[in-house]
Nucleic acid binder design. Structure first.
Lengths: 247, 247
DNA sequence: ACGTAGAGGATCGTTGAACGATCCGACAAG
DNA sequence: CTTGTCGGATCGTTCAACGATCCTCTACGT
């Protein structure tokens, strides 16, 4: 009897296997989250410039949602660091300071280099090979976007490349952290003109890095990545400081 | 004229220097945040056990706040990973799985080791020496707590030690990440009896690490920290798996 | 001219109530 | 044993309202 039940359970488990990842699509519904999605798009696309105040009343009215629901959406975006909330003053689109930018790159070098290094230490299972394949796909997408002069796509491909680097560590928490940090970085990129200047030069370096990874040379990949990040930081930091001063 | 204004501003700046840290107490006011503080304490102290459902109605009634305000507090704690939110079901105290525990230690080794390593690479300015001093203070507090058999204090001192390690990197974002991760870890510690077993053996290792740091031997400190984390992980993971299975 | 105090308006913070939607458990029918 | 259905409990969302807070502008006194 007990054995029969166990076998039955096992069969049922096999039947529903592979549906786990679909649960995420099922659970997503809340109005606040959808509002947050809309606002996130608007912010990253520059419709709401940094520093802009997002009035509860006007936006709530425009989107046809109540103030309470809108507040939940604001809170969501606040914890993604896209908005800042000042008591009794409202929410504003985050203004990234130069110090923020430095910290962002500090986190990036810390985490991304550590992720690459962990590849050299741990075992090479199917997870790591899949992660490297994802990185390679991002590089390929970036090359295609560059060829098509689709600079927006190039930007997202570049971000995806770095997300792939982080994924080498195989840690969901680290992935989430870097997702937020890279979203912040996208804010910086957007206020600056000429995305090509900031992404195109790094295509060949991305390619070099992924080749080193595929060759299993984690140390070389880390070296390349470190100099990549240092160059990117100094270039972006300088340009951003100028941009801030110009206001 | 302009010079006078500038001098005035400078003087005013000097006057308010040292009040920076008080702003946190000033700016904090919102009812939702205070409610979140209360609930956070209750959760970490074990009043709400993992898996418990937090009813909006009952808690809102008990605390005398409206459902909408309580929801904002829930959202706060959800983003700290202390609660999980299931649509149309409510919020529950987070149940840390064994996979979560593994991920927590993955993040810890990644970040803490990288933070220590960064000490060996960057310059030794007053910030890093202050950070090392903070770590030493945490170790000393832990030793005092152990001597007084104040196991709760020992636990917080140990957490503070690791927060100090992370602070070596000098990155606010990294600090915040690890604050959340270590808070999760506290959840694990709390469901397990005998905190002494999990903290006391590491006192001497903490002392060794801080001595290596004070001697400027970052490589040795990293080695010690790595083996520390590995031992801690395997011990805790095993005990926690047993504890889960016993339910 | 300068600094300060106060009035007014706009917006936020919070509450309470309400209605529909969703989930869960129990019970009955196949 | 599975499936369908029903009712209760709870959540999701909206709305209206009031007090609290902040910002701006004006007026006053020195």
């Amino acid at each position: 009897m007990a054995g029969g039940v166990a076998k039955n359970d096992q069969r049922r488990l096999a039947e529903v296997a592979g549906l786990e990842r679909d649960r995420a699509l099922l659970g997503r519904a809340s109005t606040a989250e959808r509002v947050a999605d809309i606002l996130r798009d608007r912010i990253t696309e520059g419709y709401f410039p940094p520093g802009a105040r997002l009035s509860e009343e006007s936006i709530g009215g425009a989107l046809g949602v109540s103030r309470n629901t809108l507040r939940e959406a604001f809170r969501l975006l606040t914890h993604e660091r896209l908005l800042v909330h000042e008591l009794n003053r409202g929410v504003f689109v985050r203004v990234v300071t130069v110090e923020d930018l430095d910290d962002i790159y500090r986190v990036r070098t810390l985490v991304e280099c550590a992720a690459v290094r962990s590849l050299g230490e741990g075992p090479h299972d199917e997870r790591t090979t899949a992660a490297v394949a994802a990185i390679e796909a991002a590089v390929r997408a970036g090359e295609a976007a560059s060829h098509d002069r689709a600079w927006q796509d190039l930007s997202t491909a570049n971000i995806r490349f770095h997300q792939g680097i982080v994924a080498l560590a195989g840690s969901p928490r680290t992935d989430e952290l870097m997702r937020g940090v890279l979203a912040e970085l996208r804010l910086v990129f957007h206020v600056m003109a000429d995305p090509r200047r900031f992404h195109a030069p790094y295509l060949t370096r991305n390619r070099q890095i992924v080749e080193a990874l595929q060759a299993g040379d984690a140390a070389e990949a880390e070296r390349l990545l470190l100099s990549y990040l240092e160059d990117s930081r100094s270039q972006l930091s300088g340009a951003y400081a100028q941009h801030i001063a110009r206001d």
